[in-house]
Design a protein around this nucleic acid. Structure first.
Lengths: 179, 179
DNA sequence: AAACTATGTCAATAGTGCTGACATATTTTT
DNA sequence: AAAAATATGTCAGCACTATTGACATAGTTT
């Protein structure tokens, strides 16, 4: 047995008395668990996982982004991305296009198939959010959005602001326009 | 190459125009990513992962729960729990006590060491939440809590309600009292 | 005594992440 | 033109978390 095993059992629960915001910690845990369960079901039919979902999502949100840019958004390593991206390319959900300025770069675009899947995955999540906002007014929504944004590390909030809100362009700085 | 590969690249981004609530989907993703990064750092020092965190958290919140009850909260399988729980027991964070009524059962309790770690893990998350609620009044908080709860599958909301709010007792139905 | 239940464990597999090393093509710098 | 740096791809190996299926043990219920 390891050192420091068996002492005495503590029979009282941690509660808010301990100065911890348990209710929001736990709500956040349960909410996210169920939030991700919707797409998980669909993904299973394709033999895909959450990693595929994230890649597909951001390629659809920032078409033409490079591998390096994608790694920066996802905060994973090149090797972790490789397998997943290869599968999405092989199954025709994503296409690589050689960069026009720098031919070393591979711009990533969704195909019609990839777009359809991305929307299919987003739909149940959007519906869940819509239902959860039942009875909420515009101000309530704003409170919720501000809270979620404030939960993000400050230095990463820029990533969120850079995503297109409506029929806008593409990535920060650059400008590929639409076609 | 697989069937249905390379078609044409789509160069426009998915936007809110597609009828999807992208902003909250993405905010939720980024917020949860950073929310879990705080404890991840601490866990790494112990050679533990998120699975250990979840087990430790709920054992501290519902001391005396059985293995079966824990599986029900976490929604994982017995085999997935086994390794993680064994490590937490071997390192003296959790103790098993033979069930008083049914001696097949193993009631799970945190040790002082396990309680300390659970609090250490919850503290940065609580701080992040506290900071994110900067400038929010009681009503804003209520809006946020209602939203998060509404994001949880209805049939699972009972689990949340069963958790002790303050210096209350323990698990639904049962009553081990405090010591 | 037989059946059921709670737990533990073994073996195998999958998905996702990591590090390190190295290859190739291309661009930039010297 | 040669050298250095960059963007990407790939190979090999490892770790963690989760899965399913099968089986063992102890204890409870019928």
């Amino acid at each position: 047995m390891a050192e420091g095993a068996a002492t005495k059992p503590i029979r009282t629960a941690i509660t808010s008395d301990d100065g911890i915001d348990l209710s929001i910690i736990e709500l956040f845990f349960f909410a996210y668990r169920d939030f991700t369960s919707d797409p998980d079901q669909i993904l299973a039919d394709y033999g895909f996982g959450r990693a595929h979902h994230r890649v597909l999502h951001f390629v659809n949100r920032m078409p033409g982004l490079t591998v390096a840019e994608l790694l920066d958004v996802l905060k994973i390593t090149k090797q972790s991305l490789a397998r997943v991206l290869k599968q999405l390319i092989d199954t025709g959900h994503i296409i690589q296009v050689q960069g026009p300025r720098d031919r070393r770069q591979r711009e990533l675009y969704p195909t019609a198939k990839g777009r359809a899947l991305a929307l299919a995955l987003a739909r149940p999540q959007s519906r869940r959010i819509h239902d959860a906002l039942e009875g909420a007014n515009a101000e309530d929504r704003s409170v919720i959005e501000r809270f979620l944004k404030a939960m993000v590390n400050p230095e990463l909030r820029a990533q969120i602001d850079d995503l297109p809100a409506d029929s806008a362009g593409r990535i920060p700085g650059k400008s590929h326009g639409d076609q």
